Computed example of a mutant assay.
Amino acid sequence: MAMIRVSDISGDREAQELTFSVGESHYEIDLTDAEVEKMKGDLGMFLDVARKPAQKVSTASFDAKEVRVWAQKHGIEVHPQGRIPKVVLEQWKNR
């Protein structure tokens, strides 16, 4: 039996799943084609100037604490919280 998606906004059938992110928060919502178009229209000025993200290093592929300790031991400045710069991750992976 095929799964039927229902719009989270209108309750209409034949919706599609849409995923998006704002900052560090990731979202999923089921919308009809018309609702997707409305969302794109509402975000239009932002979408027109936005750029696609560079391919990210998966956080599952490293232990952030381990990378920070390694960086400190090698005199590389890394903030105690937040993202670890890609260049530092590459250095750590090539150690």
Rank of each mutant, 00 (worst) to 15 (best):
Ile84Asp: 11
Asp63Gly: 08
Gln72Phe: 08
Glu77Gln: 11
Arg68Val: 12
Arg68Cys: 09
Pro85Glu: 08
His74Arg: 13
Gln81Asp: 10
Ile76Tyr: 03
Gln72Met: 10
Glu66Met: 10
Glu66Phe: 10
Val67Asp: 08
Lys93Gln: 15
His79Ser: 11
Val69Met: 13
Ala64Trp: 05
His79Val: 01
Glu77Asp: 11
Val78Lys: 00
Gly82Trp: 05
Glu66Val: 08
Val87Asp: 15
Glu77Trp: 01
Glu66Thr: 14
Gln91Met: 11
Phe62Gly: 06
Gly82Ser: 02
Asn94Lys: 15
Ala71Asn: 04
Lys86Ala: 13
Ile76Pro: 00
Trp70Cys: 08
Leu89Gln: 00
Glu90Val: 04
Glu90Thr: 05
Ile84Ser: 05
Gln81Phe: 05
Asp63Arg: 09
Val67Thr: 06
Pro80Ala: 04
Ala64Arg: 05
Val67Lys: 08
Glu77Ala: 11
Ile84Trp: 04
Leu89Ile: 07
Lys86Pro: 07
Gly82Phe: 06
Ala64Lys: 10
Leu89Ala: 01
Asp63Ser: 13
Glu90Asp: 11
Val69Ala: 15
Gln91Ser: 15
Arg68Ile: 07
Trp92Tyr: 12
Gln81Met: 02
Pro80Val: 00
Gln72Arg: 14
Ile76Arg: 00
His79Tyr: 09
Glu90Ser: 06
Glu66Asp: 13
Trp70Glu: 04
Trp92Met: 04
Val88Gln: 02
His74Gln: 12
Gln72Gly: 09
His74Cys: 03
Val87Ala: 13
Phe62Arg: 11
Gln91Gly: 01
Gly75Pro: 00
Lys86Ile: 13
Phe62Ala: 05
Glu90His: 08
Val78Ile: 02
Lys73Cys: 00
Lys73Gly: 01
Glu77Gly: 01
Val69Arg: 15
Trp92Arg: 13
Val69Thr: 12
Asn94Ala: 15
Val88Trp: 05
Gly75Val: 02
Glu66Arg: 10
Val88Pro: 03
Ala71Gly: 08
Leu89Cys: 02
Gln91Val: 01
Arg83His: 07
Trp70Gly: 04
His74Gly: 03
Lys93Thr: 04
Val67Ile: 12
Arg83Lys: 09
Lys93Ala: 14
Lys86Glu: 14
Gly75Phe: 03
His74Val: 01
Trp92Lys: 05
Trp92Gly: 08
Arg68Gly: 07
Lys73Leu: 05
Glu90Ala: 09
Val67Phe: 15
Arg83Ile: 01
Lys86His: 12
Lys86Tyr: 12
Lys65Ser: 14
Val87Glu: 15
Lys86Leu: 14
Gln91Pro: 00
Gln91Trp: 03
Lys73Tyr: 02
Ile84Asn: 02
Lys86Ser: 14
Glu66Lys: 14
His74Phe: 04
Lys86Thr: 14
Pro80Gly: 01
Ala64Glu: 14
Lys86Gln: 14
Arg83Pro: 01
Arg68Phe: 07
Pro80Ser: 04
Val69His: 10
His79Met: 06
Gln81Pro: 00
Asp63Gln: 11
Pro80Gln: 05
Lys93Ile: 06
Lys73Asn: 11
Gln72Pro: 01
Val67Pro: 03
Lys86Asp: 09
Lys73Pro: 00
Gly75Arg: 00
Trp92Phe: 12
Gln72Glu: 15
Gln81Arg: 15
Arg68Glu: 08
Asp63Thr: 11
Asn94Cys: 03
